[in-house]
């Protein structure tokens, strides 16, 4: 069934899944734009894929592991923290789950 727009509740639900906040103008635009795109991609239903496997990796690589003795490129703690919004005791400060 063709849906011309998603409901405000649907849009807000998806935004919540993405941890995004939207203003009213964005909600209005997205309810139409998302429905339009979802409608467009239904064109794929014209193709029979009942015996077709998915391709997730185009060059066919599987199980690529780190080589023995490979030099690890990793950041020092100070480098890793360099862009942090807030640092407490040389660690990232996040929203408190319990009181700090």
């Amino acid at each position: 069934m063709t849906k011309e727009r998603l409901s405000k509740e649907e849009v807000l639900h998806i935004a919540q899944l993405c941890n995004l906040t939207l203003n009213q103008v964005e909600i209005d635009k997205l309810s139409v734009m998302l429905a339009e795109t979802i409608e467009y991609v239904k064109v794929l239903d014209e193709l029979d894929t009942s015996h077709v496997k998915e391709t997730y990796q185009v060059t066919g690589l599987t199980n690529v592991f780190q080589k023995t003795g490979q030099k690890n490129t990793t950041l020092s703690q100070q480098e890793a923290l360099a862009n942090a919004k807030e640092v407490i005791k040389d660690m990232f400060a996040t929203k408190a789950v319990f009181e700090r």
Binding site: A15, C18, L34, I38, E86, F92
Partner: peptide, 23 residues
């Protein structure tokens, strides 16, 4: 938290794409 500004700073196009992807 680790780097970059909060998610409220995303522009409309990024929001639109993330949301369609989440859907």
């Amino acid at each position: 938290i680790r780097y970059g500004n909060p998610r409220t700073e995303f522009g409309f196009e990024a929001k639109k794409r993330m949301m369609l992807g989440a859907y």
